[in-house]
Amino acid sequence: MRVFPVYAPKLIVKHARIFLTGVIWVKDLGRLEFEKGRFLLPRKSLPKVKQAILELNELIEAQN
């Protein structure tokens, strides 16, 4: 598990694309899981977490 002390979308996306499957922890967002290079949306999450995951997945799609 990698810990990101700040929310840096480009760096987080780079990590997810390299490792494809895993878990990261982002300060103020908490634990985020990714599989096959995409972030998974938890069943229950705060609106800011949901927005961050959608933003990260959009960045991943834009890079493909």
Rank of each mutant, 00 (worst) to 15 (best):
M1V: 15
M1T: 15
M1S: 15
M1A: 15
M1E: 15
M1N: 15
R2Q: 15
R2M: 15
R2G: 09
V3T: 12
V3K: 14
V3W: 14
V3A: 05
V3C: 15
F4G: 01
F4I: 03
F4R: 00
P5T: 06
P5I: 14
P5Q: 14
P5L: 15
P5C: 15
P5K: 14
P5M: 15
P5N: 12
P5R: 14
V6Q: 05
V6Y: 13
V6N: 04
V6F: 14
V6G: 04
V6P: 00
V6L: 06
Y7P: 01
Y7A: 00
Y7N: 01
Y7C: 03
Y7V: 00
Y7E: 01
A8N: 07
A8E: 09
A8I: 13
A8W: 13
P9H: 01
P9L: 02
P9Q: 03
P9D: 02
P9S: 03
P9W: 02
K10F: 10
K10A: 13
K10H: 09
K10R: 09
K10Y: 12
K10N: 12
K10L: 13
K10Q: 12
K10W: 11
L11F: 05
L11G: 06
L11W: 10
L11K: 06
I12G: 00
I12E: 01
I12Y: 01
I12R: 04
V13S: 10
V13N: 02
V13H: 02
V13P: 00
V13D: 00
V13L: 04
V13E: 05
K14N: 10
K14M: 14
K14T: 09
K14L: 12
K14W: 10
K14Q: 13
K14I: 12
K14P: 05
H15Y: 05
H15Q: 02
H15S: 03
H15N: 01
H15W: 07
A16E: 01
A16L: 05
A16P: 01
A16K: 01
A16F: 02
A16N: 00
R17K: 06
R17N: 09
R17E: 12
R17W: 11
R17F: 10
R17L: 13
R17A: 12
I18R: 11
I18K: 12
I18Q: 12
I18W: 12
I18S: 08
I18D: 10
I18N: 12
I18H: 14
F19C: 15
F19E: 15
F19S: 10
F19M: 12
F19P: 00
F19T: 13
L20Y: 12
L20S: 09
L20K: 05
L20N: 07
L20M: 11
L20V: 10
L20T: 09
L20G: 10
T21C: 14
T21I: 08
T21G: 09
T21K: 14
T21E: 11
T21W: 06
T21F: 08
G22P: 02
G22W: 01
G22T: 01
G22Y: 03
G22M: 04
V23G: 02
V23M: 08
V23E: 15
V23W: 06
V23C: 13
V23N: 05
I24G: 00
I24N: 00
I24R: 00
I24H: 00
I24W: 01
I24P: 00
W25D: 10
W25M: 11
W25P: 00
W25I: 07
W25H: 06
W25T: 05
W25G: 04
W25K: 12
W25E: 15
W25F: 08
W25S: 05
V26M: 01
V26Q: 01
V26P: 01
V26L: 04
V26E: 00
K27P: 14
K27R: 04
K27L: 12
K27A: 14
D28S: 13
D28V: 05
D28G: 14
D28Q: 13
D28L: 13
D28C: 15
D28A: 14
L29K: 03
L29I: 09
L29Q: 00
L29N: 00
L29Y: 05
G30M: 03
G30T: 02
G30Q: 01
G30A: 04
G30V: 02
G30I: 02
G30H: 02
R31G: 02
R31K: 14
R31D: 04
R31P: 02
R31Q: 11
R31F: 09
R31V: 05
R31W: 01
L32F: 14
L32Q: 00
L32I: 14
L32C: 02
L32R: 00
L32P: 02
L32A: 00
L32D: 03
E33H: 13
E33P: 07
E33A: 14
E33V: 13
E33D: 15
E33F: 14
F34Y: 06
F34H: 03
F34C: 04
F34D: 00
F34W: 04
F34Q: 00
F34G: 01
F34E: 00
F34A: 00
F34P: 02
E35H: 12
E35R: 14
E35D: 12
E35V: 12
K36R: 09
K36C: 13
K36I: 04
K36D: 11
G37M: 08
G37F: 05
G37P: 01
G37H: 03
G37E: 05
G37W: 02
G37I: 05
G37N: 04
R38K: 09
R38G: 06
R38H: 08
R38F: 12
F39D: 06
F39T: 03
F39Y: 04
F39C: 03
F39A: 02
L40F: 05
L40C: 10
L40R: 12
L40G: 04
L40V: 11
L40K: 14
L40P: 08
L40Y: 06
L41G: 05
L41W: 07
L41A: 09
L41F: 08
L41S: 07
P42L: 09
P42R: 11
P42Y: 08
P42E: 05
P42M: 05
R43A: 08
R43S: 07
R43C: 09
R43T: 06
R43D: 07
K44T: 06
K44L: 06
K44S: 05
K44A: 06
S45I: 11
S45M: 13
S45F: 07
S45Y: 09
S45H: 13
S45D: 06
L46C: 14
L46D: 07
L46E: 07
L46I: 13
P47N: 11
P47Y: 09
P47K: 13
P47T: 11
P47L: 13
P47I: 10
P47G: 09
P47C: 09
P47H: 10
P47R: 14
K48G: 06
K48M: 08
K48T: 07
K48L: 07
K48F: 05
V49K: 12
V49E: 04
V49W: 02
V49Q: 07
V49L: 12
V49M: 13
K50Y: 07
K50W: 10
K50E: 06
K50V: 08
K50F: 10
K50Q: 08
K50T: 07
K50R: 13
K50C: 09
Q51N: 09
Q51C: 11
Q51F: 13
Q51W: 11
Q51R: 12
Q51V: 08
Q51H: 12
Q51P: 03
Q51S: 09
Q51T: 10
A52I: 07
A52D: 00
A52K: 11
I53N: 00
I53H: 00
I53Q: 01
I53L: 06
I53M: 03
I53F: 03
I53W: 04
I53S: 03
I53P: 00
L54F: 09
L54A: 11
L54M: 11
L54Q: 06
E55R: 05
E55W: 04
E55L: 07
E55Y: 09
E55G: 04
E55D: 07
E55Q: 09
E55A: 07
E55N: 05
L56Y: 00
L56F: 02
L56I: 04
L56R: 01
L56K: 11
L56S: 00
L56N: 02
N57R: 02
N57G: 02
N57E: 03
N57P: 01
N57C: 04
N57K: 02
N57A: 02
N57L: 03
N57D: 01
E58Q: 12
E58D: 08
E58Y: 12
E58M: 10
L59G: 04
L59M: 12
L59Q: 06
L59W: 08
L59S: 04
L59A: 09
L59R: 05
I60T: 05
I60Y: 06
I60P: 00
I60S: 04
I60H: 04
I60E: 03
I60D: 02
I60R: 03
E61Y: 06
E61P: 03
E61N: 15
E61R: 04
A62R: 09
A62C: 12
A62Q: 14
A62N: 10
A62T: 10
A62M: 12
A62H: 10
A62S: 10
Q63V: 12
Q63T: 11
Q63A: 13
Q63S: 11
Q63L: 10
Q63D: 14
Q63M: 10
N64I: 10
N64R: 07
N64A: 10
N64D: 13
N64L: 09
N64W: 03
N64T: 11
N64E: 11
